[in-house]
């Protein structure tokens, strides 16, 4: 794992001007309708394929790294790329370009919603939209659990059983035992770290 380095200001192609770099990120920001996978796709297309500011390998490696860093992965990825291409300025430009369009639209939509929120017809709309959000949320939960469960399955039956138990116990601890979510998250992380390390599970 310890090969390659994340060099500051050494893009694969020549360093772009601040304006060109910002424009590329705004393009990503305004076009990313349809959730995170679209954004990631656009990011790779612009940064790797179109401009060559970061290599394909580097892009994939940093994507692995941002998975374990706190917060939204796409924001982490844009920070790393920004730093890689233009240093601290690059971080600011990448974040501004990615976030300003989407945040503005989100705020405007919410503000518009807040003005009609009390209307009776909105209450009726919500009785349909809320269950749909829950349905789509279940899909998100499945997608979240998918990668760790697949990795466990590849490591064998014991690992899979442990992962499933951890998932269901965490849910039960919060709902039935009413434990604070933060405590459950810490315990689950620490327990899994110890068990995976100690058991030496490896994917064949």
């Amino acid at each position: 794992m310890a090969h390659g380095q994340l060099a500051e200001g050494q893009p694969a192609a020549g360093a772009p001007s601040a304006l060109v770099f910002l424009r590329a990120w705004i393009g990503i920001g305004v076009q990313s309708f349809g959730g995170g996978s679209t954004t990631l796709y656009l990011m790779r297309r612009e940064m790797v394929e179109r401009h060559g500011w970061i290599s394909d390998d580097e892009f994939s490696r940093t994507w692995g790294m941002v998975q374990i860093v706190p917060g939204i992965n796409l924001i982490g990825q844009s920070i790393v790329i920004g730093y890689h291409v233009l240093g601290a300025t690059g971080v600011v430009l990448a974040l501004a370009g990615l976030l300003l369009p989407s945040v503005t639209i989100t705020v405007l939509l919410t503000a518009a919603y807040a003005t009609v929120r009390e209307l009776p017809v909105v209450a009726a709309l919500l009785r349909g939209v809320v269950p749909a959000t829950v349905g789509l949320g279940l899909l998100l939960a499945l997608q979240m659990a998918r990668a760790p469960l697949l990795a466990s399955r590849a490591e064998g039956r014991t690992s899979l059983a442990f992962s499933v138990a951890l998932l269901t116990t965490s849910a039960a601890m919060t709902s039935f035992a009413g434990l604070p979510v933060l405590a459950v998250l810490w315990s689950a992380g620490a327990l899994c770290a110890l068990v995976v390390w100690h058991a030496g599970w490896r994917q064949p």
Binding site: M144, L149, S170, V181, A188, A190, W197
Partner: peptide, 13 residues
Amino acid sequence: GFVRGLTLAVAGI
């Protein structure tokens, strides 16, 4: 392991 545990717990909760 820590990241896996955290992700599984978040999905469950």
